[in-house]
Design a protein around this nucleic acid. Structure first.
Lengths: 218, 218
DNA sequence: ACAAAAGTGTTACTCATACACCCATGC
DNA sequence: GCATGGGTGTATGAGTAACACTTTTGT
């Protein structure tokens, strides 16, 4: 660096990592316990190192702090937070990310908890605000992209998919209209296999055609 | 700061500042001339200081480098750029912003040029990428918000407004449909005044009801 | 045979699109 | 009276929303 005195801020990342489990949308939270935030929860995250991009940093922290296998996750940059007092320990500017993971890919670790979105407690730092923005982004983006691939298993029943949409959007959807729209979108295809859930009629299993973001027409 | 060796990156902001002038969408560019980028252009921007947020920083640089009166501008955060080599002089992470200004509020300064979007040359650093993302954001956001208030004068004719939309969206719109949609959106209201453009029938002048962002229904 | 989830079509309504002529004014 | 931009309505097609019953399977 040329000018030492320009270096003043710690640069960090935070991630709002969602999963869908037992019919509920959940967020990954870790324990926070320091002089300023006693026995609270917060988002996983940490510093950006000199030789990594913000995205590299998020992936590393997701792996280290939440035990997440990076390959399995959808990640997108959410927003950057730069309020001067957002971290009472010193000036920290944070680039926040939104990430999705199918629940069966989660590795559970001590100090890491998956909390239902509706039951998130008051969080440390400005993490409440970050989560709020992440939920809005997820809600709007699931409408016009295929990012649900990030939160559903590789192959899934359509009712499962509909449940994910209903939970994220926070409202019931009509089964026939949902299916029509999803089929017409061309985002998914049959796997050819069927799955029986307990004792009843087996359901066709589907998968996403693409595992990169696709925007729906318009 | 607690830990000196955590401080490695320079934090900066860049702004993609749009205006609409003579039927053209233009971007504010400044001269860049250093060891790495000879006689080129780039976006206005600069460092974030220890006592300012990213948004404070953008506003300050817009004022200093481009002579823009802050009060008149619409500003939103665009995206953060953290590629390690994006600035060859050293590690700089930049929070980019999108801003809009009505052309009559521009103060012209030496070394600052307003370049038609279609004619933007190769820019210094990663500023091409930033501009591209800004244009996409502007295109999509003008469809479902009232942010056009940031680029139109306080009061304006409807054809003027339609021209702004056509230029940003890059396509012709139907006059009657445009008017219908705008009126139904409830975003604007009559000022009660009329304006004659040259020798012909005077047009009703309108203004935006709100000068903060409003999202259209749906 | 029954319990449970899977699967399937039609109608009504709303919204977007396409399209052409008269109006008001200054010169 | 003419040139110019301002202003207006209707018809068609597309997409969204509402709605209920039959099918398949395991027990």
């Amino acid at each position: 660096m040329k000018n030492k005195n320009l270096q003043f801020a710690v640069l960090a990342t935070d991630v709002v990592l969602f999963t869908y489990q037992n019919g509920k949308l959940k967020v990954c939270l870790i324990n926070v316990d320091n002089d300023y935030f006693k026995n609270m929860k917060g988002l996983p995250g940490g510093l950006i190192l000199p030789n990594e991009t913000a995205e590299d940093s998020v992936k590393r922290h997701m792996k280290d702090k939440a035990g997440i296998a990076i390959k399995e996750t959808y990640i997108e940059q959410l927003y950057s937070f730069s309020k001067i007092k957002r971290d009472p320990r010193g000036r920290v500017v944070s680039v926040a990310y939104l990430a999705l993971i199918p629940s069966e890919k989660i590795n559970y670790k001590d100090g890491v908890e998956w909390v239902e979105v509706k039951k998130i407690p008051k969080l440390a730092y400005d993490h409440d605000e970050i989560v709020k923005i992440a939920i809005e982004r997820l809600k709007s983006k699931i409408r016009y992209t295929n990012i649900a691939y990030g939160i559903l298993p590789r192959s899934f029943r359509l009712t499962e998919m509909q449940n994910v949409y209903e939970t994220i959007l926070g409202k019931k959807l009509d089964k026939r209209n949902f299916r029509k729209k999803i089929f017409e979108s061309g985002l998914i295809e049959e796997t050819g296999k069927k799955e029986s859930e307990g004792a009843y009629r087996p359901a066709m299993l589907y998968r996403f055609k693409n595992r990169e973001v696709v925007f729906m027409d318009r």
